[in-house]
Design a protein around this nucleic acid. Structure first.
Lengths: 182, 182
DNA sequence: GAGGGGTTGTACCGATCGGTACAAACAGAC
DNA sequence: GTCTGTTTGTACCGATCGGTACAACCCCTC
């Protein structure tokens, strides 16, 4: 019994590399090493279910490693988020699949999951910023700006082929979100 | 003689809505009102040439309306850029095709044009910020951050279905790029 | 109206798309 | 070893993909 979980990461990389439309079953089969029979056994819903499962796994990872610490952790959760994000997105060389789906034509299909992901990210970061001493309104605005800037930095650093741009942007965000003192 | 130029805007909207992979010739034909014969007469290179021409047209528009004013205009060019960007992207409801291509699988095919577009945008904005009185190093960093934030704001406001988020982000960028005094 | 260029729709091409059917290969229980 | 149920590869489905071929067409000149 090869579990679904094992194939999900390979699946995720295919969707990241080729997008939802571009990820053909032939590519998926090659990347996962599974024939169509196995794929449709694991994901009876086909490509849609595969992408949905990948999305759910990504969502769970962010929930555990980023959103939850932001909501419940101390003020060190904010810089920790930037560390985690920098690692996760491999300095902008790895695309945010949720962001890709937000822009692409798969948007309608996964609109709810995509909206949820970003809404929770912004809300969790805003909560952490508020507890770190930011003014509530300014904290929410800053949270939106920070998440947007992370997404944009991925686009930009990939487009320019400059991983350092992503790193630089994260550094700038780190200091922008740091409170001068209590 | 229906010129290529007339069909380019319809073409651009199809690519924006469905991405490069998702924009099938059937969709393109429907959107432009042209049969395959006419399409391949106008664009002998097929879909690749269509997308390349759309990219070139977008590039030219930005060059004229945004990059050039940033490079050669006065300090009012920076806030004017945010106005133009807000209008062009329809408060984040309209996707940046260059950004989409930067993330998608068409990336390799159009990598040069995409890199050029963003590189010139950042350079032009940095130049304007420098002339507006920003420290050169800080100006470049701020330019990168601003372009990234514009791209990210499109992703985020579309994902959340909140055009106001884009408007808000642009407002924040306007004040962040404004110099306190000379 | 006859001729001839550029322009157009349409039929068609092989390849590939996402998805299904199903039989061989496999496992563990007994 | 035999049976049972799961896991797998493969052949196949109709539809659609990007692209080509080509004949009908329009419009202009004479």
């Amino acid at each position: 019994m090869t579990g679904r979980a094992e194939t999900l990461s390979a699946l995720a990389e295919v969707f990241r590399a080729y997008g939802y439309e571009g990820a053909s079953l032939a590519l998926i089969s090659r990347a996962t090493g599974l024939g169509k029979g196995s794929l449709y056994h694991l994901f009876p819903g086909g490509k849609t279910e595969m992408a949905a499962c990948v999305l759910a796994e990504i969502d769970a990872w962010f929930e555990t490693n980023i959103f939850s610490p932001l909501r419940d952790g101390g003020p060190e959760a904010v810089p920790a988020m930037f560390d985690a994000v920098e690692r996760y997105f491999q300095s902008g060389q790895r695309v945010c699949l949720v962001g890709v789906l937000a822009l692409g034509s798969g948007r309608d299909r996964f609109a709810d999951a995509v909206r949820d992901y970003f809404a929770r990210w912004v809300a969790a970061l805003a909560s952490a910023l508020r507890r770190a001493g930011h003014d509530p309104a300014a904290g929410t605005a800053l949270a939106e700006e920070a998440v947007a800037q992370i997404q944009g930095a991925i686009v930009l650093s990939r487009a320019l082929g400059e991983p350092t741009l992503f790193t630089r942007t994260m550094a700038a965000l780190r200091s922008r979100t740091a409170m001068a003192a209590g």
